[in-house]
């Protein structure tokens, strides 16, 4: 199916919803980052997404690429740290993939998300099991593609993606980190959720909610 079922408005709602979830979980994300990192992931993501929403308030998005490129650039220029370039690149690639249209089909959205994942991997070189946001992002996209590829709706795909992201997040707990700051802890990084995987699960929770969940 190539029906343009996901509207610009829904995707704006996705980002606004993500911002709210990040703000609500700011303390929690920072606590996770205290255990294995430097106690700033909540502040970083909150600062970045608040800036994104401010930008969207100032000038409504005119097209999908405008929406996601501005989101990506805003994150790159306000977050810093590891999550700034990673989430920033993710959204920049989404924008490039979706182009100047005002709606997308489920498979187009799936392809765009995968382009985003590829951007994250290019920047961060993470692999499965490194205990990073990759471990929530990759299974989420597999689930999304599975549903969308077999004719499911975008809403159904987003729901499956959220569930897979949450499972991927939970599966980071026992891992020993091999990327990012948590890797400095060696064995001591095991037993804690990865902060970035946790914020990525929030990203798919927001998508699920925005597309009808």
């Amino acid at each position: 199916m190539n029906v343009a079922e996901v509207s610009l408005d829904e995707l704006v709602a996705w980002l606004r919803g993500f911002q709210k979830l990040v703000a609500d979980n700011r303390v929690y994300l920072t606590e996770l980052d205290s255990a294995v990192g430097d106690a700033d992931h909540g502040a970083n993501m909150d600062r970045g997404m608040a800036a994104v929403v401010t930008k969207l308030d100032e000038a409504p998005a005119t097209a999908l690429d405008d929406l996601f490129k501005r989101t990506g650039m805003t994150l790159v220029s306000t977050v810093g740290g590891a999550s700034g370039p990673l989430y920033g690149t993710f959204f920049l690639r989404l924008g490039t993939s979706l182009g100047a249209s005002s709606a997308a089909s489920a498979t187009e959205l799936g392809a765009a998300l995968r382009a985003g994942l590829e951007g994250v991997v290019q920047r961060g070189k993470a692999e499965a099991g490194d205990k990073t946001m990759y471990d929530a992002l990759a299974p989420a996209l597999d689930a999304f593609d599975g549903v969308a590829g077999s004719g499911g709706s975008a809403a159904e795909a987003a729901h499956a993606a959220f569930e897979a992201a949450a499972a991927g997040r939970d599966a980071t707990a026992p891992l020993v980190a091999r990327k990012g700051r948590a890797s400095y802890l060696g064995e001591r990084s095991a037993g804690h959720l990865d902060p970035g995987a946790t914020s990525t699960a929030l990203l798919f929770q927001a998508l699920d909610e925005a597309l009808g969940g």
Binding site: D38, A39, A43, N44, G80, G81, A82, G84
Partner: peptide
């Protein structure tokens, strides 16, 4: 200067 413990941005 970035935020506390957060690298500065490319800009």
């Amino acid at each position: 200067a970035g935020e506390v413990f957060t690298s500065p941005t490319p800009d």
